[in-house]
């Protein structure tokens, strides 16, 4: 067992842990935005480290897996941003006591 395999195993374990945390967060969190924060941030890191770990375990696939990681890092935040924006537009508001909603203020400033 060489060093690459050990790094790959560590990375895949880390990725699996983050994916599990994301799943728990989706069940546990109270409202839409906090749930989405668990379901996108944690799973982005989890999937990235999982795929990179597989690339370390099979060194022939390393370049392709790095490309996939770059693609995930580009695409996943954009999709979660679009999702959050669509939720805000369709009238779902954060469930918090202080009711800080900066995005609404930004939108009103944009329109005026």
């Amino acid at each position: 067992m060489n060093i690459m395999t050990i790094i790959g195993m560590l990375l895949t374990s880390l990725g699996a842990l983050f994916l599990l945390l994301g799943a728990i967060g989706i069940v546990r969190m109270p409202d839409m935005y906090t749930r989405m924060q668990a379901g996108t941030k944690a799973t982005t890191l989890g999937a990235m480290s999982f795929i990179l770990g597989i690339g370390f375990m099979e060194p022939a696939w390393l370049i392709k897996t790095i490309l996939i990681v770059v693609f995930i890092a580009l695409s996943n935040p954009i999709s979660s941003h679009a999702l959050a924006r669509a939720a805000h537009r369709s009238g779902i508001f954060p469930l918090s006591r202080e009711n800080i909603d900066l995005y609404k203020k930004d939108n009103q400033e944009d329109k005026s």
Partner: peptide
Amino acid sequence: HREPSSILTTGAKALFPIIVLL
């Protein structure tokens, strides 16, 4: 509600070549 945000526009322009490459 049609107008996309600037993040989405930039992201779409950045992602399109990668998707065509795939």
